[in-house]
Design a protein around this nucleic acid. Structure first.
Length: 583
RNA sequence: GCGCCCGUAGCUCAGCUGGAUAGAGUAUCGGCCUCCGAAGCCGAGGGUCGUGGGUUCGAAUCCCGCCGGGCGCACCA
């Protein structure tokens, strides 16, 4: 469990007692009170701002309030010392037996350690990737894919019931283009010389096997038919093939979706018309003319009346079109229908992961959610910035035409799934990221996953040595959980335990903020603490992990090392990265 | 013109939603391998947190104004 939640509860109990004792008024409001690890370890193991937040309410000075609270906290069995510092912080140092208990818990829980019940099983929907089904995934998609998947895992670890969802944009004009491109490849497969692929169609070679499959299935049955007849057939066939390809690409990255939602299915079921009528019944629809776009010259702009949604009532900058000038529904209209569908499937807590170039779309979607659910649902949109592809410090130009189009699959094959995933998660989602294909392959310090994995590999190495040194001892996690932790007395050993015990809190904080990258930084800290401890043992023989003539001490230290491995593996598991035992 | 994101050490970035003396990596300099993996560790220097105001016990963090950078801005998806 999150030890800081436990400490906060202890403080709340102490405050209750002070109220009962008549020393504090019952009107104090502890909602803003927190218990946190202090930034500087010299301040102790846990700090609370209780006095600063509530002193005024109690009509006291912060330090007076702090004195009262400190007296109560001193009596707690897990508390070693209490100090008041600065403007009124109450700093606690927790007892060694408390930390020993934490270490025991890590070993007992094993890979389950770090899990939280913060989410209380509430449903959350994470929609990500949602790449158009018109070709293979390219590297540009990989960041959103990895981010969405890791965020989903993080939320699961924090106790949410998470659904990973992919929205298939299979209703727009681009899938008609796909169908025509496939038709051309179909004729090619039947022996026709198709020449160069005309402008406006997809030229990619990935459609050649689709054409062959169509030729095998239908022979020349469609060659002389009008487009109106073959197009729906070819479209459905090609989309299915594209989705198979995309699913394979995602699987190569270790990503699996729970739900694939089809835009076309929504449209054909009349859900888009339904959502427009639904909004109309709420008086949120009107026919009007939009202003021409500002700051950007649109050559063929002509004002014409359209069906508009009153998005401005819900915080958007302008009202938004639901029907095009030709009367067809806009993408936004079907996206509204889609999000309403998600809401009706029981998701009032949704996350969408988009590329940063869709930033201008966020407000209107949030306005839509407000309008559609009367403010009952929430939508967090996470924008993933671009990945700058580099090779030895030089930018890599991507061009579909030049054939240097780098697919996601190429990248996975080149650098490996785990490296790719970890690197994508070492930056905030809204910060640009340089990804150097060569440096990352070097297996050096330029590879961020390496440092963390190295710590894990070292731990595994100690485990192997221990088995040789103590062949008759039970070295399983459950056995090590019973080791004598009082033998771990060095400050750097206790510091490592403190850090390891923080994983549940790190998971909760990262999950609440929807920011998986925090786990990457935390793991880096854990690795650093472990590497530091390791080198202390090189310099000071008394701190060596394993000594044949001191089996009890060796087992206690092995327990600490195994706990480190557990925490690293648990954290990497959120990222979908498997640590390796030897490198 | 409007909206969103960003501005923190020479460089790349953290900073736990308002906490204490702002931290890592990298680069530079100086140390540590007869000893559990040196792909590592320890230490030093390096900052007006773009800028000017405001909010309060307290601001890199929240609000407003500037300066600088990125993205987006009818009907496309």
């Amino acid at each position: 469990m999150n030890i800081f939640t436990a400490i906060r509860n202890n403080i709340l109990d102490s405050l209750d007692e002070l109220v009962k004792d008549g020393k504090l008024p019952a009107t104090i409001d502890p909602s803003r009170m927190v218990a946190e690890p202090p930034r500087d370890a010299a301040h102790g193991d846990a700090a609370t701002n209780a006095a600063m937040v509530m002193a005024a309410q109690a009509g006291m000075k912060p330090r007076e309030f702090a004195e009262l609270l400190a007296e109560k906290l001193k009596a707690l069995p897990i508390v070693e010392t209490v100090e008041i510092a600065g403007p009124g912080f109450v700093n606690m140092r927790l007892s060694k037996t408390f930390w020993d208990g934490c270490l025991k818990e890590i070993l007992e829980k094993g890979s389950e350690f770090g899990s939280s019940d913060m989410g209380k099983g509430r449903k959350k929907n994470v929609e990500f990737v949602s790449a158009n089904p018109t070709g293979p995934m390219h590297v540009g998609h990989s960041r959103g894919a990895v981010f969405g998947d890791a965020l989903a895992s993080l939320l699961q670890k924090a106790g949410y019931d998470v659904t990973r969802e992919y929205y298939i944009n299979d209703a727009g004009a681009q899938v008609d283009v796909l169908a025509r491109s496939a038709f051309l490849r179909y004729k090619e497969a039947l022996g026709e010389n198709i020449g160069a692929i005309p402008e406006g169609l997809y030229p990619g070679a990935y459609l050649i096997p689709v054409g062959k499959a169509l030729a095998e299935k239908y022979g020349n049955a469609w060659t002389d038919k009008p487009e109106a007849e073959w197009l729906p057939v070819f479209r459905a066939f090609a989309i299915e093939k594209m989705m198979d390809m995309i699913r394979d690409d995602l699987a190569a990255l270790g990503i699996k979706f729970d739900v694939f939602s089809s835009e076309r299915a929504l449209v054909e079921a009349g859900k888009v018309d339904e959502v427009i009528e639904f909004l109309r019944s709420k008086g949120l629809i009107y026919e009007g003319v939009l202003e021409p776009p500002k700051g950007k010259v649109v050559e063929d702009y002509e004002p014409h009346p359209q069906t508009l949604f009153k998005a401005t009532l819900f915080g958007d900058d302008v009202d938004r079109a639901l029907k095009k000038s030709n009367g067809f529904q806009t993408y936004f209209a079907s996206d509204m229908a889609y999000h309403l569908d998600k809401y009706r499937r029981g998701f009032d807590d949704m996350i969408d992961v988009w590329g940063a170039d869709h930033g201008g779309y966020v407000k209107r979607m949030q306005a839509a959610i407000k309008a559609l659910t009367d403010g009952k649902a929430k939508l967090d949109v996470k924008l993933c910035q671009m990945v700058n592809l580099m090779s030895n410090g030089e930018p890599v130009k991507m061009s579909k035409r030049a054939g240097t189009f780098v697919t996601l699959r190429d990248m996975v094959d080149a650098v490996g799934k785990d490296v790719m995933r970890f690197i994508m998660l070492t930056r905030k989602n809204d910060a640009q990221l340089d990804f150097d294909v060569e440096k990352v392959k070097e297996q050096s310090k330029d590879n961020p996953v390496f440092y963390v994995n190295y710590a894990y590999a070292r731990a595994a190495s100690v485990r192997r040595r221990a088995r040789e040194m103590f062949p008759n001892r039970d070295l399983s996690l459950s056995a090590l959980a019973k080791a004598d932790f009082s033998l771990l007395t060095d400050e750097s050993e206790v510091a490592l335990i403190r850090l390891l015990a923080e994983l549940p809190r790190q998971v909760e904080v990262a999950a609440a903020a929807h920011e998986p990258h925090r786990i990457a930084y935390y793991l880096n800290d854990v690795a650093a603490a472990f590497h530091g401890l390791w080198n202390k043992g090189r310099e000071n023989a008394d701190l060596r992990f394993l000594e044949a003539d001191k089996p009890e001490q060796s087992l206690a230290r092995l327990a600490l090392i195994e706990a480190t491995a557990v925490v690293i593996a648990s954290g990497l598991d959120i990222f979908g990265v498997t640590p390796v035992e030897e490198m």
